[in-house]
Design a binder for these strands. Structure first.
Lengths: 147, 147
DNA sequence: CCATGATGCGGGTATCTACACGTAAATGCC
DNA sequence: GGCATTTACGTGTAGATACCCGCATCATGG
């Protein structure tokens, strides 16, 4: 009964390594499409998140994206340098800076949407909706483990 | 029939964003366990890969891990600085440097294995084997799209 | 009103990742 | 054998990510 563990000690796949690997592959696919718009996949995700809700503080947005606050801050700074987002002061709290899309940011986000949809369609076509729904649920369960 | 797309234009989840998010969460979980051994999850993956096969060149190992060659080179350099791996010249090809675990590298890899297994068990316990097998297959299909 | 703690944020540092470019060695073709 | 091509690798640059530490502002108890 110990034979199995003796002959194949560590062939169990690392779930973390698998997922990191998948994220690298998917990022490559998505960024091939997004390249013409001069933004990366994480940047597109940020623009999308910012455009789909009322202006939010960095900490709040980071919580929603399950991203480190300082990471998000630095990523947003790059978008600010490109003129795609601006930080608006919160009148009721001097500490908070509300992330807001500029007109240019909204434009890029809107245009790049087609590229993103192309990548989404490619994945759906090759993987299938059913597995992708399962992926969505799986990620939710994984996220729940760290919250 | 256009109503659905009008009322919910873009609520489709980004498969790339989902996967990147999952990789962040999982990395956090694994690195909590690995921290006492002074290595990160990617570093542990590298040690594991290097110890599970004959010495390999950087390009070959990068191909196997689906990692950019230069990325792998830099990651290995950090392990070299920690004395966990060394580069051995290939007698038949002066260009190639064969990645080899040091005694210390093998020791750390072996000791950290328990930490990794704890993380693996945590995930298995909370997610379930069936979904993890599905994940494994899904990642293989995604990888196939970029090869 | 003021001291204390909580909150929002930035900077320093470090690792992971990839692309563009350049160099040296091996290979192959004539 | 000699030269073009391919192969293996490094460096420069840049973005994504997270931890630690410090600062300014807000909220609260006395």
């Amino acid at each position: 009964m110990a034979e199995r563990s003796l002959s194949k000690p560590n062939d169990e796949p690392c779930y973390c390594g698998l997922t990191r690997r998948a994220s690298r592959s998917l990022t490559e696919i998505y960024e091939r499409e997004l390249a013409p718009y001069g933004i990366t996949q994480p940047q597109f995700s940020l623009l999308r998140a910012a455009s789909n809700s009322a202006p939010m503080g960095i900490t709040e947005l980071a919580l929603q994206l399950n991203l480190d606050r300082t990471t998000l801050g630095r990523n947003l700074k790059l978008l600010e340098a490109q003129g795609l987002v601006v930080f608006v002061a919160n009148q009721h709290d001097q500490r908070e800076r509300l992330v807001t899309l500029t007109r240019s940011g909204a434009k890029v986000s809107k245009e790049a949407l087609a590229a993103w949809q192309a990548a989404q369609a490619l994945i759906r076509r090759n993987i299938g909706r059913q597995k992708l729904v399962a992926l969505e649920q799986l990620v939710a369960e994984i996220d729940a483990l760290v919250s």
